[in-house]
Design a protein around this nucleic acid. Structure first.
Lengths: 208, 208, 208, 208
DNA sequence: TATGAATGAGGGTTCATTCAT
DNA sequence: CATGAATGAACCCTCATTCAT
């Protein structure tokens, strides 16, 4: 049975790998299920044994691939001795940006498809096939300590800012290259964190 | 000739209107040219007299629709007596957000399709069928006065931040509704402007 | 497997047969793939499982049909005891002409489509789905014996002459019917062979 | 009126010229009426004022273009002092072949389209828009003198032989280039003429 | 489980032809 | 005579999905 199960797992992973390669090289719209099964070396019907349709495999890929990016960033962070929270966040973001610079196809894939809703799913559902529990990381960083007014909004803004600006800067160097953009991103990130830090809320709010 | 030309313009606009309605209700992928011409009440071949393909009409719609949003925001701004630049920017953004709240289908359409490159095209090419010259507005606000270190990067960051965060907040109230998010957005916008203001560069830079 | 393969072969042959019938009755240009699949009783997509496009099926038909003609002629020749080479050639040509007289649709199809390049392909590639190896026949007749100065040119001229003249004579009796034309054709064929026969080259050449 | 008529003639000739250029460069099937009128600089409807459809203009072109070739060959012949009939025929054929070598697009166009029936039309109908009366030439050469047994068959065979063999030799050098093929063609032509010459009919006929 | 032949609706696109101007 | 916008049938081809093996 183990052998059969292993075979099954191989088929599934072959399909995922192939789909990712084709999605990132030809685009999702232009990739047909025929393309995937042909390259993966399985029969057409087999695809439907593992995935509902093209968008099912896409969603599973996004969760998987973005999870990996966060995992690698977290591992790198653990290898440092940075303790200050703000510096830890900056380190993570910098690491993720660097990963995306190195892997532009992954960037294109994630940016076009990773919504905030998706991201939360990664956070929550990560435990199922991952050794890292992102939910724990998230909470230990932002949630438990009560240091931030609205941690979820804060993380949301940071992620959307980084995602949106990096896409254009890394892939098209528009309006500037990522190296030139990074300082601005980091300063804005620090600004966002400062804004949400509870002790820092003494200034008068005059938001329009 | 006038009669024929008027008829042509009507056909063209009928196609644009119908395409927009279908794109925003069914999505671009799911909308076929057959759908468009059927709803617009013209023959299939007629579509190809006016547009190259589905993506041609989409691009023209994006430019047109986002141009309109900016135009309306600018008109509203002119009706005020706000003089301070920062306040003018905040007013514009607030107005645009409010428009998008009122017109969620437009928001979905623009957000999914308006890239920075597209935005620049709207800015530059707006003159062709618009009474407002966005390029002038842009330059009079940010470019000429030498008050900002890198105005293009600044505008880029503001637009990407607003676009990315509003999409989720307005359409899905995730992670919070737009009303709750707005103060954070505005404060971040002010932070971004402060960061680029040349005289404000006295603080120490410690961008990683 | 045998059952499925048999079914596949049947589908393929049904398509070939139907295409031939339509090509010869309506012409290739006027025959659409829709026509073929409809008459063959298969779905449109099925066509593309077996052939790349209309011209793929046409080429396969030409090779197949002209191969059959040559094969039949060769079989008939083997049933005789003609030994003299020239008489054997005349016999083959006569037999082929007679076949084409009997099957005028085949004549129209082959004549319009069988170029010299095509003919060589039939000769060379015939082995793949045929029991007769035309290449062997050809070589044993003309090539090996060293009796002809330029056997390829000789065969080329004979084939082009026969093809071009028979088409008009058989189908339209223009300028005369095939029976009246035959003697002239045969005499010209003999002339061409005489011309290429190496020992026959004693006459003075005065080719302009 | 003359001016209008001149304008009409110009439109017609512009259409003919453009059609010929497109037919020979893209092929007849791939050339649409839209292509022709666009390149010719006239409106679509105008085409139908002069020609019935694409095949009407094609037929008119074939007659016109092949007529020109024969006319040029005849003019060249008249400039010589060749008197012997056989040599005159060889001269004509050689001249025509040379024209086709120089003008390969013309060769492709004529060969693919010039049937014997067409050729006779050119002969007969040539008077309508040509200064040369081919019918006269033809008859003075072959018909009137009673020197040939069946002049029409003879001309037919010569034309078909030359047309069929030259096409492959000039355009594809298959099986040999035209220069290498010419001697064989001429000898065969002489053979065909000898065969039809009435005084030369002393040899025994053994046509199968 | 796994296969892959078969399906057929539906996609985008072309183009000969018409006809009001 | 000349125009060219409009037509819409017909084209080729793709592909997600099914199901008998």
């Amino acid at each position: 049975m183990s052998k059969i199960d292993k075979n099954k797992q191989m088929k599934r992973e072959s399909l995922l790998e192939t789909a990712f390669r084709l999605f990132t090289s030809k685009g999702i719209q232009k990739t047909s299920i025929s393309d995937i099964v042909e390259d993966a070396g399985v029969a057409k019907g087999t695809f439907y044994l593992y995935f509902k349709d093209k968008y099912d495999i896409r969603n599973k890929l996004i969760a998987h691939k973005s999870g990996e990016v966060f995992k690698r960033a977290d591992l790198a962070l653990q290898a440092t001795d940075i303790t200050e929270l703000e510096e830890r966040v900056i380190f993570l973001i910098d690491n993720i940006i660097n990963q995306l610079v190195e892997n532009k196809t992954l960037l294109g894939f994630i940016s076009k498809n990773l919504s905030w809703g998706m991201f939360k799913n990664v956070l929550i559902g990560a435990g199922e096939d991952s050794e890292v529990d992102f939910y724990d990381i998230y909470h230990s960083m932002f949630g438990d300590e009560g240091r931030f007014e609205n941690p979820e909004v804060m993380v949301f803004m940071m992620i959307e800012l980084v995602g949106a600006t990096c896409y254009s800067a890394i892939l098209y160097s528009e309006p500037v290259g990522i190296d030139e953009l990074k300082p601005y991103i980091f300063r804005t990130i620090r600004g966002i964190m400062a804004m949400h830090r509870i002790t820092g809320q003494t200034e008068t709010d005059s938001d329009i």
